[in-house]
C-alpha cells in the first residue's frame, strides 16, 4: 500500500495559483515586470506594526509614498511566467519543500525505531553476520550517480534542451531501477539466509526501514518515467523546467535519506 505521502508523490500537479491575471502560459512576461518591486513591499520596516503612540493616520502617511510607484497588482508576474508570489518562491516548489520536511520526520521515526531494535535479534542472525557491505556500498554508489544524472537532467531542462532532458531522466530512472533491483536481490538473499520479516525485532525493523525507502525510490522511478512520457507527448502542464526541478528535489531527498540510512544501518558496527 503506497505509504502516506500525499498525491505529491506523483508528479506534483503543476498547479498554477488561481491568482488573478490571464492563465494562458503563452504570454511572455511583460518587460516592465519588476518582480523585485513585489519584494520591496515586504521590506517595509517592522514599523508596519504601529508603535504605541503614533495614530493610524501618521503611520499611513509614511507608507503612502512607498505604494504610489507600485504597478497594479493584476499584471504582476515572476520570471517564469508563473504568478507572482509574496516570497518569490513558486507555490509548487514551496509545497514540495514542505512535503520533504514532513518526510524527514517519517524517516526519522523509522530510523529511531531501527536504532532501538538493532541489537535485539533474538534467535535470528545478527546484523554483522548477514550484511554484505561491499555489495551495498556499490548499490549506494549507483544511487549517488543517479543524483548526478538528475542534476544534468535539471540543467538541460532549464536550458530547454528537451532531448537531453529526456535522456538524462531515463538514465536516472535506469540507475534507480538498478538500485531497487539490488535491494530486491539483497532481501531475497537475506530471506534465504534465514532472516524473514518476522524472524526478530532486528529483521522486522530493518525490512520496514529499507522497505519504506525502496518504495519511495520506486515511486521516484515511476515519476521519472511518467515525466519522460509527458515531455515527449507535450502534455506537461505549466512550466516544464519547474516540474523537472520538483522531481529532482524529490530524487535528491530520497538519495540523501539513503546516505543516512546506509551509514547508520550498514556502516556503524552493531
Amino acid at each position: 500500500m503506497s505509504d502516506a505521502d500525499a498525491p505529491h508523490g506523483a508528479t506534483p500537479p503543476a498547479e498554477k495559483t488561481p491568482e488573478h491575471g490571464a492563465p494562458d502560459e503563452g504570454n511572455a512576461p511583460t518587460p516592465d515586470d519588476a518582480s523585485a518591486v513585489a519584494e520591496k513591499v515586504d521590506e517595509i520596516p517592522m514599523g508596519g506594526v504601529p508603535e504605541p503612540g503614533p495614530t493610524g493616520e501618521a503611520q499611513r502617511a509614511d507608507d503612502s509614498n512607498l505604494l504610489t510607484e507600485l504597478p497594479d497588482h493584476a499584471e504582476h508576474r515572476d520570471l517564469h511566467g508563473g504568478h507572482a508570489t509574496t516570497t518569490g518562491l513558486s507555490n509548487n516548489k514551496m509545497g514540495m519543500w514542505l512535503f520533504l520536511g514532513s518526510e524527514c520526520l517519517l524517516f526519522g521515526g523509522l530510523i529511531s525505531t531501527y536504532m532501538l531494535y538493532r541489537g535485539r535479534q533474538a534467535d535470528g542472525p545478527g546484523p554483522d553476520q548477514i550484511y554484505d557491505i561491499p555489495f551495498t556500498s556499490v548499490s549506494s554508489f549507483v544511487l549517488l550517480m543517479s543524483s548526478l544524472t538528475m542534476v544534468l537532467a535539471v540543467s538541460s531542462a532549464t536550458r530547454n534542451d528537451e532531448r537531453n532532458t529526456k535522456l538524462w531522466l531515463t538514465i536516472t530512472a535506469l540507475l534507480g531501477a538498478t538500485f531497487v533491483g539490488g535491494q530486491v536481490y539483497e532481501f531475497t538473499a537475506f530471506y534465504r539466509e534465514g532472516m524473514g520479516f518476522t524472524t526478530s525485532l532486528f529483521s522486522s525493523s530493518f525490512f520496514t526501514l529499507t522497505g519504506f525507502h525502496g518504495a519511495h525510490v520506486t515511486i521516484g522511478i515511476i515519476m521519472l518515467m511518467a515525466l519522460v512520457g509527458m515531455i515527449s507527448r507535450q502534455r506537461v502542464v505549466g512550466d516544464k523546467a519547474e516540474v523537472v526541478e520538483l522531481v529532482g528535489l524529490y530524487w535528491h531527498f530520497v538519495d540523501i535519506v539513503w546516505i543516512v540510512i546506509f551509514t547508520l544501518v550498514y556502516l556503524i558496527p552493531a
Binding site: 531501477a177 538498478t178 531497487v180 533491483g181 539490488g182 530486491v184 536481490y185 531475497t188 522511478i221 518515467m225
Partner: peptide
C-alpha cells in the same frame, strides 16, 4: 520495471 528488477535480482542471485 518489475521485469527489469526481477531479472536483475535473479542474475545477482
Amino acid at each position: 520495471l518489475g521485469v527489469v528488477i526481477y531479472s536483475f535480482s535473479r542474475i545477482m542471485l
